[in-house]
């Protein structure tokens, strides 16, 4: 009797219908992947623009530091996006592994004199303007 009630509810209520939610999951993940792709593309464009300006005005070393920092920022954002993509499906929490990226960046910048700390940190934060632009352009 109870199983019949559950079957009736699941067949009529779209929120409880597992089949309908599974059938649209591909569309949902595509939307999420598309957002990530747009942010990555914006971040790469900003990186190229900023590295060019930094290399022209402050030299090759500052440009290289900015470039490495920007790559670290994009990698950090990728790890964060992967953690959020797993939330609710295979994980109950968002991992903190991505916080190792700025730690390693500062450690490497302090150990190697070829890298400047300030341009590397500024490059790391270049994903934020990309996020702001993406956030403002969202409908």
């Amino acid at each position: 009797m109870a199983s019949e009630t559950v079957e009736n509810c699941s067949s009529h209520d779209p929120l409880l219908d597992i089949d309908s939610s599974d059938s649209s999951s591909g569309v949902k993940s595509d939307e999420y992947l598309e957002l990530q792709f747009r942010v990555f593309r914006l971040a790469f464009l900003l990186t190229i623009f900023s590295v060019g300006i930094a290399g022209f005005f402050w030299g090759i070393q500052a440009g290289a530091s900015l470039f490495i920092g920007a790559l670290s920022g994009i990698f950090y954002f990728r790890l964060l996006a992967r953690g959020i993509g797993r939330l609710g499906t295979s994980s109950k929490i968002v991992g903190k592994v991505q916080l190792l990226v700025p730690v390693l960046l500062v450690l490497v910048s302090s150990r190697f004199p070829q890298l400047d700390l300030i341009p590397a940190l500024l490059g790391f934060l270049l994903y934020k303007p990309a996020l702001i632009i993406q956030f403002l352009s969202m409908p």
């Binding site: 939610s21 649209s24 949902k28």
Partner: peptide, 12 residues
């Protein structure tokens, strides 16, 4: 569940 993509994007 149909708004999962938008919710995950905003959460990100």
């Amino acid at each position: 569940p149909e708004a999962e993509g938008k919710i995950r994007g905003t959460l990100l």
